[in-house]
Nucleic acid binder design. Sequence first.
DNA 1: GTCGCCTGCAAATACGTTTTCGCACACTAT
DNA 2: ATAGTGTGCGAAAACGTATTTGCAGGCGAC
Lengths: 356, 356
Amino acid sequence: MLPAMKQPVGIKQVAEAAGVSITTVSHALNGKGRLTDATRQHVRQVAERLGYRPNATARNLAGGRTGLIGLAVSQTLEGRFAVSDFAYYSQLMSTATAAAMDRGYALVLASGTDPSAWRNIGLDGMIVVDPVRADPLVRELRSQRIPIVTTGRIPDTDKGHWVDNDHRAGTRAILDHLAARGAERIALLASPPVTSYAIDAGDSYEQWCAEHGQEPLLAVARDDLTEGSGFEATVGLLRRRRPPDAVYATLDRLALGALLAAQAKGLSVPRELLVAGCTDSEAGKWAHPSLTALALDPEEIGRAALAMVVGLIEGTDPSPANVLVATRILPRGSTRRRVLARKTAAPARGAGASVA
Amino acid sequence: MLPAMKQPVGIKQVAEAAGVSITTVSHALNGKGRLTDATRQHVRQVAERLGYRPNATARNLAGGRTGLIGLAVSQTLEGRFAVSDFAYYSQLMSTATAAAMDRGYALVLASGTDPSAWRNIGLDGMIVVDPVRADPLVRELRSQRIPIVTTGRIPDTDKGHWVDNDHRAGTRAILDHLAARGAERIALLASPPVTSYAIDAGDSYEQWCAEHGQEPLLAVARDDLTEGSGFEATVGLLRRRRPPDAVYATLDRLALGALLAAQAKGLSVPRELLVAGCTDSEAGKWAHPSLTALALDPEEIGRAALAMVVGLIEGTDPSPANVLVATRILPRGSTRRRVLARKTAAPARGAGASVA
DNA sequence: GTCGCCTGCAAATACGTTTTCGCACACTAT
DNA sequence: ATAGTGTGCGAAAACGTATTTGCAGGCGAC
């Protein structure tokens, strides 16, 4: 029972050992042709005994596919920030990788350099994370007729296959959270409206303000999305004649910058200013005070996106072309205050968002 | 000059258009056969004009390779912690990905599940991050004769191809840093000695203690490597009859736990206790006080590891089978104290480690 | 001038699968 | 018996490239 040395066991060896043709082996293993159950079983046993592993490359050549699914973060095409700085992306990648292997695919990371670079590696499908308006990467892929699933929607269109966090409900929920803790002038510290999540947050914010009779206080951060740009934008907000008493930032790093700005201005958080951010992060947990966050679910996003792109590749057009993933609020120190009795009777729940 | 629709341009089309055989096309493009420069040029121009892209799958089938390089984090085989929680891994992956594409390879992530899962995806080579003692993953790959480069050495052997941070020099440097700030009883808060970095830190620490006449104060954290286990281990240290006045942790999350433990005990950092950790992180930057770190260089590690594995794959056995990457100290709040005049004349430099 | 050598290219084969097609054989209905 | 209908399987083509081998022709040397 020693493993045969040096002799790679291919479909041919199995056929020979089983006393059938390679066609029959292929059919038996893939459940394709017209075979008796006896033959099928027999071939399978022989293949098992020989430890046969189909050659992926040959299979792909014949089948016209590669078994490769790409994953690229579109927003970084501009090279303004590093993916690795955001745990959201890392976690998304991790689960997508695991999900891919489960389904017999390999996930290849595509660094945001030259879109044409991965023309050479025939990809069966692609996951584009946070596409931007009229995304060049998406255009390129479409022209190559490669199935695409985006994570976050393509701005200005809700068409296409996508998986997204329910930012609209989440934004409303966290604004309610701030209001319930006494905030009367909540500012939105937003990333530039180039991705759907930024746009959603902005829209929901304006709508919420209109509904609650609050004057919108909007600050858009520089597009490097660092703590520094959050700091600057917040300083600008606090300089206004009627400054905000709460800030909701669409990214944790911007929120951390807001925390710094408050500190620099001598404002106590949460006593004089409430701060909350979108996306949970280690840094937020360890900031002083710890940062209340609207937690997203990158793992579910990654899983769902991968399932969807596999559906597209294998022809079983996924029934839901869109998936919306719920968010939840993680209340922490930066909004730790007595909850006020609500003026209106509306219960504190945003559709799709639950408080943990 | 409109692109021909629907007609995939293969080597055959190029041959036809150029009026030569496919053999000649292959040779011309790969610089292989005996051809006149004129023929070579001509074929190349035609190929260019037609926008010919060689089919990677076919090329791999013929060439016996796949163009795929795997990357797995071994330490997580036990499933105790998530890779995405550590920016070190994310950054390593990112740069390795970019480096792979530059060289015509694709990097596939291998989730730490079943080692045999990626038997199906023929990998040309593999990067194993932080291998453990007698690593099962490494064994599996060796039995498949897949070239391996490890990031961090395989414990108990310095053989094999590896790229590593210079933890020995780094550890000595940070111990010097603490001593220079008045620490007289420095404790080592270590992760379990299953990886080379943990072992290196432990060895260097003991050696340093022997050289400086200090009693070793060792605490080994639980292997989930969270802040919680750092907290517990530090509480144990501080309960001793003669507690430490400084703690160096081999991981940032453990160091953050130490910070929490000090806070719980009512000890002021850095006044009454100095704390430093290995690996820079966002969380450390935002902790209170901010955490002094021995910064590693995951990007350089990723780049070097990829270059090395490509060398192995392509036969050009890389002249240096080992690469040691320098570390540097990032002094921050948790060790912010007046630097004492040194008792000995030794200058504050660990070989290979420089203070930023 | 004949032999051998070198040059420039093409035909053929190999890589390991999947898939299409067709061939026997057996069985049923006439 | 004969035609018709399935059934179980194998031969062969296809996927797109790299490489090995073979085949002409030109040239120099004797």
